[in-house]
């Protein structure tokens, strides 16, 4: 059964009371919240996610609710709690839904060391996956949203889960986090895309989440093979251009921007090494999303590299 099988009022009621347990690729979340915006976001953006029986095992027991003090009477706020533990400061109530999204990222990033977790978007077509790292603002979420509206499968817009050992990519498809101008850009680029309510004045500016394609959610158990690591950069007026980049430097960038590379020791080194062996690495500058999608559609399979490793 999917979340869409429940009427919105039922979703809100369950969230207020026992909570809702649902599966996102390899993890199960148990969410409780009395906040209407959270119920609304769940109905709109998580409609295609499978419900799990409550009373089983959930990876993350999370709640978004009012903070346990009098502040709510002064200025309504929401606080995230992970099993009774509140790692972050409360935020204005208006940001309750984005807070849920960020908090769930945090749960995955801090509790899933069975994967090497890179800070990058990842999409797949024809069995081959493109990993899109890059600093905030470089446009990886925008490009990711554009690609998944043109037939690429969403694995994640934020967390690339790499299987330890064989370096296969594990999907954890979630709503795509769009910021500021990208919200309008994606509305124009893909008028059919479903977007949640925009939260203004967050730490990241205005934020809205885009519903992932139903097909990406349904195929969340299907692993993908890494083929390219591409650093996107939006550049006004630029023609879409791929520029090869050094694998060793890409390795170091990915390691430094990983959530858990430093915990994984020699195994993490080996896994990231295999990932780099398997991938062609590029810098990519673009200004038009249509051109960018065409460039990605034209990517050839990665060159077989001479794999060298030494004990």
């Amino acid at each position: 059964m999917k979340i869409s099988a429940l009427a919105p009022a039922e979703v809100a009621r369950r969230l207020r009371q026992t909570g809702i347990v649902f599966r996102i690729g390899p993890v199960t979340a148990h969410l409780r919240s009395p906040v209407p915006a959270v119920a609304e976001g769940l109905c709109r953006l998580y409609a295609d996610y499978p419900l799990e029986e409550s009373g089983g095992f959930a990876d993350f027991h999370v709640a978004i609710g009012p903070p346990p003090n009098l502040r709510r009477w002064i200025r309504p706020q929401a606080v995230f709690s992970f099993d009774g533990h509140t790692p972050f400061r409360p935020l204005p109530l208006e940001q309750a839904f984005p807070m849920f999204e960020w908090s769930l990222n945090w749960c995955v990033a801090s509790c899933c060391n069975q994967y090497l977790i890179l800070h990058a978007a990842v999409v797949e077509k024809g069995g081959l996956a493109a990993i899109l790292p890059g600093p905030p603002g470089a446009g990886k979420s925008t490009l990711c949203a554009a690609l998944v509206n043109r037939g690429w499968r969403l694995l994640s817009d934020e967390l690339t889960l790499v299987s330890m050992g064989d370096a296969g990519l594990v999907p954890i498809p979630r709503p795509v986090n769009l910021k500021n101008d990208s919200i309008e850009i994606i509305r124009r680029f893909a008028p059919g895309a479903v977007l949640g309510r925009t939260s203004h004045d967050t730490q990241k500016g205005s934020v809205a989440h885009m519903k992932p394609p139903a097909d990406s959610v349904e195929r969340a158990d299907e692993l993908a093979r890494p083929a390219w690591v591409i650093f996107p950069r939006y550049e006004k007026g630029a023609t879409a251009t791929l520029q090869p980049r050094s694998k060793a430097q890409t390795f170091i960038y990915a390691a430094e921007n990983s959530f858990n590379y430093s915990y994984l020791g020699a195994q993490g080194f080996d896994t990231l090494g295999r990932l780099m062996d398997a991938c062609d690495c590029y810098d990519f500058s673009y200004s038009s999303l249509d051109e960018a999608v065409a460039t990605f559609d034209g990517l050839g399979p990665p060159a077989e590299t001479g794999i060298q490793s030494h004990a």
């Binding site: 050094s246 060793a248 430097q249 390795f251 780099m276 060298q308 490793s309 030494h310």
Partner: peptide
């Protein structure tokens, strides 16, 4: 533990 690609 070592890995190399080209001369890096």
């Amino acid at each position: 533990h070592w890995r190399s690609w080209g001369d890096e």
